[in-house]
Design a protein around this nucleic acid. Structure first.
Length: 892
RNA sequence: GCGGGUGUGGCGAAACUGGUAGACGCACUGGAUUUAGGUUCCAGCGCCGCAAGGCAUGGGGGUUCAAGUCCCUUCACCCGCACCA
């Protein structure tokens, strides 16, 4: 019997698939098509276990669908533009292009040994001019379609490096390289009008029934449709042009609880006030720190009273102060609000800090003023002092004590509608629908991205480049020795002539957000070499993506942008109407994690240790540094000896802390390189491991024992196949029928597991089936049929081993092309069932009965059961519940 | 701060529509085979208990003949937040 040796069989079968062209996608009118796509990788240079898991999942689907007779498209490409390439150039020299293409070559060489059923002839990289030139063409089409415009927007500005920073490059409000306090600064930038599609992107979510519910919810919340009241405050003491301050609120029912108005530091009114040095100082204070919502909303709330007053719309004698407040976002609503501290937590904190009145509008309906016990009612004004804002759900009924329309007791929703109606009747405001979704800013002041194909002309203004001049290629001769965008300081690249008037002009130096690149690559894969962005006939055949697989971290941005872009591509004639929702089904997979081994040095800083330097005691589960000792030596150490062996050179005896299930990261030293696993055990073992145990949507923890176990199992399957291969042809056994049933059950279990994205359950079924075959005593023919079926069922996960077994057991052709086994439905049903008997909900006995037995008959048998009789001990039976085929519950 | 999610043995997990909690795997324990073994095979394995039995699905409460599953409440951890990809 030969040993299971993946280093021999894996290259052999990969070569066989390649020479058979087994994975080349072809438009075959005789077959239904199936398009499987995994989110394409950023070419960092090394594949990691997360990639292995992602692509193995896609491969399992692709191979299963191919076996089931579909014409499968399963392509791979590279999301190749982005900051890391520029960072590498800055840190280590070299060129982003060379770095990126070198990484692509390295990663491809690492992916090939995995044996994925990918059509490599369709490979693309977004940094190929062949790709981004077509993206530039679409940008021009989108300009013509009115989907592109320019406006001022705020960026993170590093005042020392004189450069724009990504949010990721802002750490604790400081530039990551210079360490200087980051400022917010306005710049004119390019935008896509995704907000034109707010309503549609929201309502179309209902049709995405094969997307995870959580992703649809997150997108819906992100789009953030709201119904509210927009109205104007008449101002007192405001500069000319600001006689009215427009405000939007989703809680107009709390208007009688207003105690101030607040505007964003970016509001136009603030600009009109900046001659006041106190305002200027305050605005400068607000401009400290980054632009991210997280940073703005968690920052300490600060405000400045402008001295301007506004008149309350319901009482012109009631004036409210106008504050500038750092937590008001200019991008949402009108950039101005009225503050109702009693019923909004942020307003509450702001009012508490600055001593503004807190006036309640409504109370809970249970008779008490509020549910909370720590509330004080000031009898004179009816104002209350509470420890936090009272914010009931809008669907909850509350008692309005300062209502101005409708019934005193109603739900918030009803009161909001009544308040809008009141405003419209009395003419001081109108009901409007607003979306939280903002237009997509695509300008990046960076080199390694797709150039925006636009020219600035002194006479013609902003003009699109002529399509025959595309692609506008990035110049190669750039330097990264100073921060900033090298395109800006390139001596000649910026110089060009105006496409309209021919005069000397200047090329746009902003490049596109890399999210643009990844918003249409799925469509490009249907015709990757075309000289137009897409070819409609190909897009029509292959679109949509039937199954898209990737990380949950892309739940909002990437997927929303892609949904928008597909619509824009349809509008500009690059995609058929059926492709406006490009992903029929979406699956979001979990991360591959690994334990972190951490100690602390004398200064209290964390020190991380590589897994190979760790010894884990199998009984206690504790971790120790191995200090070059062998397992045997370590196993014989007394417990207290371990402490003495703690970090060499350190006198502090700190035990090693194990942090479980942590995201793999280089700095934490818990990265497992898939190449090492493939070298030690082969690709099939790596694939088997990442698909087993954890459900695919959840994180999976990499353990070396798990990888070894996977390898041992595959070795056992190989040994089992060899044993069956050695059986005499005329061997007869009694277990033929049982094995045939087990085979049918395995086909059913595995097929359902794969189709339901429960690969862990499919693998559990394969373990069970392997054990059954191993113990079976059946005739040679039945045994061979069972092992061939096992090979076909394993082939999506462990394709190389499956081919080897298939060949040894006399299967015709390639296992990859052998088709998917079908279960005989008659073999799937049992004629007797075992029913548990509960007494008062506790399981006390069980009986075995024919499947079709009538309930009354079952009841009789159950009551006659000796265990039941013993437990009842003569008590009268109150009730007996028989759930056919499931359970019997006797109530006494 | 806002939005979304997860929580079941020592560990990864299973449990279809409310119907036997712990399938399958790891680790561990005992035994057999082997020159030896970190190989292979057999058996055991939620917790307490000699047993009968009792207790168990992050914590607390509820609905039901029956709750991991439904409802309320609470805790812990993870993901996203528009210039990371």
């Amino acid at each position: 019997m030969s040993r299971y040796d993946p280093s021999v069989i894996e290259p052999k079968w990969q070569a066989a698939w390649e020479s058979a062209g087994a994975f080349t996608a072809r438009r075959d009118p005789a077959k239904p098509k199936y398009y499987v796509l995994e989110m394409f990788p950023y070419p960092s240079g090394r594949i990691h276990m997360g990639h292995v898991r992602n692509y193995t999942m896609g491969d399992v689907v692709a191979r299963t669908k191919a076996a089931q007779g579909f014409s499968v498209l399963h392509p791979m490409g590279w999301d190749a533009f982005g900051m890391p390439a520029e960072n590498a150039a800055m840190e280590r020299g070299g060129h982003p292009k060379d770095w990126t293409y070198g990484n692509i070559a390295d990663m491809k060489a690492q992916m090939k040994p995995l044996g994925l059923s990918i059509d490599w002839s369709r490979e693309l990289a977004t940094c190929d001019p062949e790709y981004y030139g077509q993206q530039q063409a679409m940008f021009i089409d989108m300009m013509e379609a009115g989907l592109v415009y320019r406006k001022a927007a705020v960026v993170n500005w590093d005042p020392v490096d004189m450069t724009v920073l990504a949010n990721e490059q802002v750490i604790d409000g400081k530039g990551w390289r210079s360490g200087a306090a980051v400022e917010r600064r306005e710049l004119t930038q390019w935008f896509f009008k995704i907000s034109d599609y707010s309503e549609e992107l929201l309502s179309a979510l209902d049709g995405l029934t094969n997307w995870p519910e959580k992703v649809r919810l997150m997108q819906a919340n992100w789009i953030g449709k709201s119904r509210g009241l927009q109205f104007g405050f008449d101002t007192v003491g405001a500069p000319a042009g600001f006689e009215v301050l427009e405000v939007y609120t989703t809680r107009p029912d709390t208007l009688m609880g207003a105690s101030f108005a607040a505007i964003s530091p970016d509001h136009p009114l603030v600009k009109a006030l900046e001659s006041d040095p106190r305002v200027a100082t305050f605005v400068a204070l607000c401009q400290k720190g980054g632009t991210s919502a997280e940073e703005i909303e968690t920052a300490e709330k600060i405000g400045h009273d402008t001295g301007i007053r506004v008149k309350h719309p319901l009482d012109p004698n009631w004036e409210l102060p106008v504050w500038i407040a750092n937590f008001i976002l200019m991008d949402y609503g009108t950039g101005a609000i009225f503050g109702c501290p009693a019923h909004d937590q942020r307003d509450f904190e702001f009012a508490s800090k600055y001593g503004l009145p807190i006036k309640s509008v409504f109370a809970a309906t249970d008779g008490s003023m509020f549910n909370a016990t720590d509330i004080l009612v000031r009898e004179d004004a009816g104002d209350v002092v509470l420890s936090e804002a009272f914010v009931p759900m809008k669907s909850e009924k509350v008692r309005y004590i300062r209502g101005f329309s409708g019934q005193p007791v109603q739900t918030g929703d009803e009161a909001v509608a009544a308040a809008i109606a009141h405003a419209e009747t009395h003419g001081y405001g109108k009901g409007v629908t607003k979306f939280r979704l903002r237009d997509w800013g695509v300008s990046r002041q960076r080199y390694w991205g797709c150039p925006i194909p636009v020219i600035h002309c002194a006479t013609c203004g902003v003009v699109a480049e002529k399509k025959e001049n595309l692609p506008i290629e990035l110049p190669y001769d750039v330097s990264f020795d100073v921060p900033g965008n090298p395109l800006d300081r390139h001596p000649t690249w910026r110089d060009c002539s105006c496409p309209k008037c021919g005069a000397k002009a200047r090329r746009e130096t902003d490049t596109m957000d890399t999210f643009v690149d990844s918003s249409w690559y799925y469509a490009r894969f249907t015709a990757p070499r075309a000289t137009t962005p897409t070819v409609l006939a190909d897009a029509d055949y292959w679109m949509n993506v039937d199954q898209y697989i990737g990380g949950i971290e892309h739940a909002i941005l990437h997927l929303l942008y892609s949904r928008f872009f597909a619509r824009a591509m349809h509008k500009t004639g690059h995609l058929p109407a059926k492709a406006i929702e490009p992903f029929n089904a979406l699956f979001t997979q979990g991360m591959v994690t690994h334990e972190i081994y951490k100690t602390t040095d004398a200064q209290g800083r964390p020190v991380y240790h590589l897994p190979e330097h760790i010894y884990k005691d199998p009984t206690s589960g504790k971790a120790y540094l191995r200090n070059n000792l062998s397992d045997d030596e370590l196993a014989e150490m007394p417990d207290d000896a371990f402490l003495a062996l703690q970090p060499p050179g350190s006198k502090k005896l700190t035990p090693i802390e194990i942090i479980p299930s942590a995201k793999m990261s280089k700095s934490k030293k818990n990265v497992v390189d898939p190449m090492n696993i493939i070298a030690a055990f082969g690709a099939d073992t790596a694939r088997w491991f990442v698909m087993s145990d954890s459900p695919p949507e959840r994180d999976v923890e990499w353990t070396s024992s798990g990888a070894e176990a996977a390898f041992k199992h595959l070795s056992r399957v190989w040994a089992l196949s060899s044993r069956i291969g050695d059986m005499p042809a005329d061997h007869k056994g009694e277990g033929d029928d049982a094995l045939a049933r087990a085979t049918a059950k395995a086909i059913d279990d595995v097929t359902r597991g794969i189709e339901g994205f429960a690969f862990n359950k499919a693998i559990a079924g394969l373990y069970a089936f392997t054990n059954t075959i191993g113990k079976a005593n059946a005739s040679t023919g039945v045994m061979k049929e069972a092992i061939r079926t096992l090979a076909r069922l394993m082939s999506p996960m462990t394709p190389h081993l499956a081919e080897e077994i298939w060949a040894v057991q006399g299967g015709a052709g390639l296992c990859a092309q052998a088709g998917w086994p079908k279960a005989d439905p008659q073999l799937l049903v049992d004629d007797t069932v075992t029913l548990p008997i509960q007494i008062n909900g506790k399981r006390r006995a069980e009986i075995s009965v024919p499947k079709e037995m009538a309930a009354a008959e079952v009841e009789k048998l159950a009551l006659a059961n000796e265990d039941v009789v013993r437990f009842l001990a003569g008590q009268p039976v109150k009730k007996i519940i028989v759930v056919p085929g499931r359970i019997i519950n006797v109530v006494v």
